[in-house]
Amino acid sequence: MATAWRAQDLSLPWLMQTLASSPEAEQSQRQGLRLRDPLELVVRSLQLLGSDHPDAIAISLRGLRAMGQAPFEPPSVKGWPVNEEWLNLRWLQARRRTLQQLLADEEVWDTRQLPSTLAANLTDLPPLALALPAAADRDSVAALFADPVWQLGLSPALR
């Protein structure tokens, strides 16, 4: 890389781009994926659905409590759990159930403003059980919401 950089007249943009696309950098990004907070997960799911129906808010607030993150009620002064501290079966099931309920609610579905396709850049890793891009129908959104990858995001430091 050093030789190539010299051949580029020590161009900094070239160096940045090359570093960012190196296998090591990609590996580092994957290592840096973390489990999103319930709030973050619910917000991005609501953003994708695009519904502002009151049911969507009610299901979300109720779901957040079951996922362990009732808004404005952190468990201690230390704050909320982070990343793998959210990992337990009970909370994971609550995440899954809440997203499914959002999608199953007919009022929320009738007021959706989904894009026509689910773009490949919706997730930071390719989903495990769904190939993106895909048509944004109810089945593919269900598959996306059920996919563990939907719950992962890059650490802010790596964005």
Binding site: R30, L35, E84, N88, L125, L152
Partner: peptide, 14 residues
């Protein structure tokens, strides 16, 4: 993919 992301690996195990 799974090996590359520790948290994904843990989720799948769970």
């Amino acid at each position: 993919v799974v090996e590359a992301s520790p948290v994904l690996r843990q989720m799948i195990a769970l």
